[in-house]
Simulated assay, not measured.
Amino acid sequence: MMEPSIDLRYFWNKGVSYEKYKEIITLQEKQEIHSSDENIKKLAEYTRLNLSRIHRNDKTLILEESVTKQLACLSYKINILVISEGWCGDASQIVPVINKMVRCTDKLDIRLVFRDENERLINQYLTNGGKAIPIVILINAETFQEIAHWGPRPQPCTPFLQKYKSDPQHYSHDDFAIDVQNFYNQDKGHTISKELTRLIVKS
């Protein structure tokens, strides 16, 4: 349950556009890829890979007509606030889909905030006690009240995580990551856009 002290308008105003987000993580990657700190360097390597995924998704993702038609019928404005980081593989697959959805209608807008700079916010959206991202928060654009939130992955990825948690000795984190990535590659954003559209339209 979100604390009354969390002001979603504040975090929305603090957020950056999708294009600015890409600029920021591109600069982060260039600055940190040669770091002497191995942990920072590893995250930068993830960001580099994710940037290539983001650019590919920007070029190739196509929303289904059923999704675009539903979004075109929205009657009031919704702000979509995404908690993310450049090194997050799931974000590199999910955020471009949301951006495509936003571009379908003038009733949606997107801004992004960085998880590690906004601990007070992410702590209100923990997943099984962890700070998993991305977290997508749907906000009424007039009242700045939360409508719903979603994340960190589409529903079909849940069994992969459950399998890893229950038997990491025989199903490693690498196995989990491969299965999730294969899902994203095959699904091409359709499940993400449908799950989010259901929440948006339901609101």
Rank of each mutant, 00 (worst) to 15 (best):
I6D: 00
D7I: 09
D7H: 05
R9E: 09
G15T: 11
S17Q: 06
E19T: 14
K20I: 13
Y21I: 07
K22L: 10
K22C: 11
I24Y: 05
I24A: 02
E32Q: 15
D37P: 07
I40Q: 07
K41F: 04
A44Q: 05
Y46F: 15
Y46G: 01
Y46A: 04
Y46T: 13
R48V: 11
L51Q: 07
I54K: 04
I54N: 05
H55I: 15
R56A: 13
T60F: 15
L61G: 06
L63C: 04
L63N: 04
L63R: 05
L63E: 00
E64W: 06
E65C: 08
S66Q: 13
S66Y: 12
K69P: 00
L74Q: 01
Y76M: 00
Y76Q: 05
Y76W: 14
Y76S: 10
I78D: 02
N79D: 10
L81V: 08
L81T: 08
L81I: 10
I83V: 14
I83C: 03
C88Q: 06
C88D: 07
D90M: 03
D90H: 09
I94H: 07
I94R: 00
V95D: 06
V97F: 07
N99L: 08
K100F: 09
C104T: 15
T105R: 02
D109M: 09
I110W: 06
V113D: 01
F114K: 12
D116H: 10
E117Q: 11
E117K: 14
E117A: 11
N118H: 06
R120G: 00
L121M: 02
L121N: 02
N123P: 06
Y125T: 08
N128C: 11
G129E: 03
G129N: 02
K131V: 11
A132K: 12
A132L: 11
I133P: 01
V136P: 02
I137A: 05
I137W: 03
L138S: 04
I147W: 00
I147R: 10
W150T: 11
R153I: 08
C157N: 11
T158C: 07
P159R: 09
P159V: 14
F160C: 04
F160T: 14
L161C: 10
Q162L: 15
Y164V: 05
Y164C: 00
D167Y: 12
P168W: 03
S172R: 08
H173W: 15
H173L: 14
D174H: 14
D179S: 10
V180D: 01
Q181V: 13
D187W: 04
K188F: 10
K188L: 09
G189W: 03
H190F: 00
H190Q: 13
H190D: 07
I192A: 03
E195C: 01
L199Q: 10
L199P: 07
L199I: 12
I200H: 05
S203D: 09
